[in-house]
Amino acid sequence: MSKPLHHIIALVKKDLLLEIRQQYTFYGIVLYVASTIFVLYLAMEQPEEKVWNGLFWMIQLFICVNAVAKSFLQESRGRMLYFYTIAGARDFVLSKLVFNAGLMILMSLVSLLLFQLLLGNPLQHPLKFVGMVCLGGCSLSLVFTFLAAIAARAQQNAAMMAIMGFPLIIPQLMLLMRISSIAFADVVQSGLWQLIALLAGLDLLVIVLAVILFPFLWKD
């Protein structure tokens, strides 16, 4: 196994272990998801499919900000320096991207389940939508992971991430809403694969930018 891959796996493992030991953060996010969707249920009951779709992705956005925001803040300065010397900035940011993508996919699936339970089920092709949810959770988490790194550097909280992130996430979000409309009815979406490729391309772009730019962010 090559060395960087080894480092990345070790760092992801470390994040997982931390998450398992300090379970309150994990359950905190789950509770956030649950209470947000419950409030939504009280406000909207069972909305029609277009509203359902829009609400679902907006909720994913807020969950993502909250789930990802802490990923760089929890590391103290000394520990940061330690990781920097043993693994290098690139491996570190890649491990964070992988971990957060996994976390966000999990959270998206949990919120999909809760949406199904509380807000009704307008989905005609649930499997297609689950695929979209995984891709979407991944896309959102990538952008916000990098923004979390910037915000942590500026010693700012989630508000800064929202200011920076909401305008930047719009292309992904619009693509996601557009693509996921296929799960609601038997419509033929023209150029569907083109849209999915575009989304995957944007994700790739974010990863490349993160890998290139992150070392500058953590240099002191």
């Binding site: 719009i170 292309p171 575009l198 944007l202 772009l205 930018l209 500058f216 240099k219």
Partner: peptide, 26 residues
């Protein structure tokens, strides 16, 4: 300066694809 430069580069490379993509979607 450094953090702002990083954000500037990151934002530009998302902004430009966006103005290429968005008009084609709607």
């Amino acid at each position: 300066a450094r953090v702002a430069a990083v954000y500037n580069i990151f934002a530009y490379f998302i902004y430009v694809p966006m103005i290429m993509v968005l008009p084609r979607l709607v």
